[in-house]
């Protein structure tokens, strides 16, 4: 290639490159840099800390709690919302009356802003007047303090997340299902494959690329979702529902320790990259792409 086409190539790449550098790569590097310093005290320049922030993190019980909460949160929401999304997609993909309305209904939670959703669910979860406790009262149950009880706070958040995410993932499954060839299903039907056999041998493997995509997104979301915590629990009670990203926010903007927040961010970033690599590495080999 001559010099001019190289120049053209770089000019074409420039806009995307500038955006990526400005908003992704440079902030990532500065975050890593920040995590190596102690916070500034009284106008004195920040003191180099080396890995001290990381050592402090390892001794921080709240960090460990937020991390384990986050793992449970991912474990509880990701498979459930994917299974639900697939089930709903299979259902609204079949020939039923009013399926457009049904598709819209399932997608509505995704269209609402998270803050609004959290406010709606706040009413459901309220101890005295909440919908759930009213229903429980019908059966003579004294009711549960959904968001105030440290055993129930995290599961309550998870329930809402599943409700919110399943509709979103359903759209991906629905799109994938509709791109599958009718002929394949006709052929399977003629070969005498029952519904379960068809799903297991045909639909599920053919949906694998979508599942991988949804899985990566669901796990990233599980670590990125933070809005609802502001409305519902603020990480409480006693950090029972604190998640990594919210803990980072607390450190940066409530405790004004942006260096420790940067440390946590680096750890979280590393965690996410590791997860993504793992997923692509393991599943990629077992997936058929058309």
């Amino acid at each position: 290639m001559n010099r001019l086409s190289w120049l053209h190539a770089w000019l074409m790449l420039l806009p995307a490159l500038a955006m990526l550098l400005a908003f992704t790569h440079i902030p990532t590097l500065t975050t890593v840099w920040h995590s190596l310093f102690f916070p500034e005290r009284g106008g004195a320049p920040a003191e180099f800390a080396g890995l001290d922030n990381y050592r402090m993190m390892l001794d921080d019980t709240v960090f460990w709690q937020a991390l384990s909460n986050n793992l449970w949160y991912a474990l509880g929401t990701v498979p459930t919302s994917i299974a639900l999304a697939l089930a709903m997609a299979l259902w609204v993909n079949s020939k039923i009356s009013g399926r457009t309305a049904l598709r819209l209904a399932y997608f509505t939670p995704t269209m609402l802003p998270m803050i609004a959703v959290a406010n709606i669910w706040l009413f459901f979860y309220s101890p005295e007047i909440g919908l759930f406790n009213k229903v429980l009262a019908l059966f003579g149950h004294p009711g549960i303090n959904w968001l105030g009880d440290s055993d129930w706070a995290l599961p309550s958040l998870m329930l809402m997340t599943v409700w919110k995410e399943a509709g979103f993932f359903m759209i991906f499954y629905l799109a994938a299902l509709q791109s599958l060839s009718r002929d394949l299903y006709d052929a399977a039907a003629l070969e005498g494959a029952g519904r379960w056999h068809t799903f297991r041998r045909l639909t599920w493997p053919l949906l694998m690329p979508t599942t991988l995509f949804v899985l990566v997104n669901a796990i990233l979301n599980a670590f990125k979702l933070v809005d609802h915590l502001f409305i519902l629990t603020k990480g409480g009670p006693n950090n029972a529902s604190n998640l990594l990203l919210y803990y980072i926010y607390e450190n940066a903007f409530s405790f004004f320790d942006s260096n420790y927040a940067a440390t946590l961010t680096v750890v979280m970033l590393a965690l996410l990259i590791l997860l993504a690599l793992l997923q692509f590495g393991v599943l990629e080999r077992r997936i058929h792409y058309r």
């Binding site: 060839s181 052929a187 039907a189 003629l190 070969e191 029952g194 058929h288 058309r290």
Partner: peptide, 21 residues
């Protein structure tokens, strides 16, 4: 009868081969 119970074989124009198998 449903297609699977008819005991027929069919060759499709698109071949309808299962791409992942």
């Amino acid at each position: 009868l449903p297609p699977g119970k008819r005991g027929l074989a069919m060759v499709f124009q698109s071949y309808a081969l299962f791409p992942h198998l």
